[in-house]
Nucleic acid binder design. Structure first.
Lengths: 146, 146
DNA sequence: ATAATCTAGATGCAATACGCACTTAGCTGT
DNA sequence: ACAGCTAAGTGCGTATTGCATCTAGATTAT
């Protein structure tokens, strides 16, 4: 079990994103918030996600539909088919339940904690950035194969 | 199959959380930041996570080790076994590479965007909260089975 | 000395979260 | 008839994470 390896790929500039640097798990509260603002259907929610902060956070429609399903299954929202007032295929219109409203409240509390977390992170980064040169402190015995 | 998640309900509160209301994907940047502050081994990083904002965000050690592996595989960090200065089993000591430092920088930029996102979310929630009683407005055609 | 405990790293498995590709189906305009 | 838009959904693969469990060296207690 030796660490060898050391073959990093990529044409140097690590143009290879390899995965989105994005925090996940935000779709559910965002949908709850949109439904808190008023009843709508999934397609509209998928577009409306950009309005609650997910501007540079493109969410696939399939994700939206699936999260809505799950929320309904848990009793957080209710749905009904709207065939009358539409110009197009029938829409499934969603509405928050009382439980869903409470759940959103809990989400909001947890997101305030998340907000603190991100703030502390950024604060810690800003504080350690100036000390760029010599932070070898912990261990000078280990030999890296660079 | 049964995960022993705490499915209790608060007094008066009904509604089975069923999953953690937590934003995911934060472990990787947190570890990068800790390594930006100085070289260490995984066990120490696992504890140190609480210092960069993950106080109420308990991260399982296995997650830490796996994220470190992945980061090394991508060339963001390097590891070496430290058998000398330790009091205990050998430690795998990690160090940020230059690529890892750039990657952290990108993460920080994206987390500032995430910060904005969460702020807009909370702002939108606070703005819509006063209208708590009857916002059935959007669609009165649909009939929910309540 | 032997056993319990702490430190350190790791794997197997399951659940969740999500995107991409694709399908179905109704409506509209040419 | 056919293309294009709206709306909802499914199949499948990948990523992230937690829980349980394993290995093994070092320290402490019996």
């Amino acid at each position: 079990m030796h660490r060898g390896r050391g073959h990093h790929r990529g044409p140097g500039g690590h143009g290879d994103p390899a995965h989105p640097r994005r925090i996940r798990g935000f779709v559910e509260p965002a949908l709850l918030l949109l439904l808190h603002q008023g009843d709508t259907h999934g397609y509209d929610l998928a577009s409306g996600l950009e309005g609650v902060g997910l501007d540079q956070y493109p969410v696939d429609p399939s994700t939206v539909y699936r999260v809505l399903r799950r929320l309904e299954h848990r009793g957080m929202i209710l749905s009904a088919w709207d065939t009358e007032g539409a110009s197009g295929p029938p829409r499934r219109v969603y509405r928050l339940t009382e439980e869903g409203r409470e759940y959103l409240t809990a989400w909001v509390a947890d997101l305030r904690a998340t907000d603190d977390m991100v703030h502390r992170f950024l604060g810690a980064y800003d504080r350690t950035f100036p000390a760029e040169s010599s932070e070898a402190g912990a261990d000078s015995r280990a030999q890296y194969s660079d």
